[in-house]
Design a protein around this nucleic acid. Structure first.
Lengths: 137, 137
DNA sequence: TTAAAATAAGATTGCAATAGTCCTATTTGT
DNA sequence: ACAAATAGGACTATTGCAATCTTATTTTAA
């Protein structure tokens, strides 16, 4: 429990890889080999990143992906949002009402919301640039 | 993904409930009804809390549970540790080696470890007392 | 204009973790 | 002795994640 999904993990690895690379363009094939990730699965993940503009896709032969923005502008929070729908350390923050039988007088909703915000801040303030920096060390 | 388990959620609700209550002793039956949680499941969860000393059990008729420590001494981190084994926002931090095929030159291990620490701090520094305070408001 | 190499995307499967249930044993106060 | 509570093992159901398979589309270069 409380684990980032593989989609998020792979997305981070991929974007970090792209940020570190000299050449702007990268293919899924290249990354799946270098990072030891299933091609198909990584491919899906890249498509999600593309839809949210975190990367830009170039179709056709000689195609691939390039970063959609500067590494310091892409946060882990961006990645999570792009790749996952379900976010929230407790159910309430996704489904809203009627999801647990104690919605009206829920006693943990408020404090959990505070914790959620703090965690969000961490992800919001961590960028691909920082990750690439660590990796290079 | 990235959600606290029901066990953790229920444990928090239960401890918060106990902290707010005037009388020290509480039964699982009472809590399961008031909090709208399956008796059996909550029962299991309380047993886990008991094993780690977060609550103290009183067996036999007229039995129940009392808090094992002052509410300000019980953190969410304590609860998570009592009730879950698997913690860690990425796999590496549980299984250690050989779990992902890029252990040796893993480029996200270090930065993820930093994020993990920050999150741990949040849970470590949030206590049942605070939660009870919010609930009462 | 055709072949090759890349992304796009839908459908499906396998699997493991979570959540929940059921049943029996044990404890203890009245 | 009985009732009401916890203790705990075994089992089941469900869900969500990860992965795979297949087909379509795009684009460049020969």
């Amino acid at each position: 429990m409380f684990r980032l999904s593989k989609k998020v993990e792979y997305a981070i690895l991929a974007l970090q890889y792209m940020a570190e690379k000299d050449e702007a363009k990268t293919s899924v094939k290249e990354m799946s080999e270098k990072l030891n990730i299933s091609f198909d699965f990584l491919s899906k993940t890249m498509q999600l990143l593309n839809k949210k503009g975190l990367v830009e896709s170039l179709q056709g032969i000689r195609g691939g992906y390039i970063l959609g923005d500067k590494p310091e502008k892409i946060s882990i929070a961006d990645i999570i949002r792009a790749v996952e729908q379900r976010i929230g350390i407790v159910q309430c923050f996704k489904d809203g009402k009627d999801s647990c039988g104690r919605v009206e007088d829920c006693t943990i909703r408020t404090p959990m919301g505070h914790i959620q915000k703090k965690i969000d801040n961490i992800f919001e303030s961590t960028t691909i640039k920082e990750l690439a920096g660590f990796a290079r060390k």
